[in-house]
Amino acid sequence: MLFKVYFWQDESVIYNIKSGDIHLLSSFDGKVLDLMSSNTKQEVLIKKIIEAYQIDYQDAEDYLGKLYDIYRKLSLID
């Protein structure tokens, strides 16, 4: 595991175990990160984003792509 996460209502705090950095995320984005780290299939993640934000498939795919980029930059996922 590269991080630890604590959830409180609609927010979450992520602790990067390697760097010691901490990040404030929405609770949903924290949950997506948690799912990404457990190798959840992309289709499942997109479905969750569509349900959470009521957006179409393409927008959800773009959103997920951005999350992957951000989390990789922060070394929270491989």
């Binding site: 209502q9 927010e11 705090v13 602790y15 175990i17 901490i22």
Partner: peptide
């Protein structure tokens, strides 16, 4: 304050947070 925001701010005030890590 929300607990998440309070934790972010509290970390700025912890002298040895980096030493203790996880």
């Amino acid at each position: 304050l929300s607990k998440a925001r309070a934790l972010m701010t509290l970390a700025e005030h912890a002298f040895n947070f980096n030493v203790l890590g996880e």
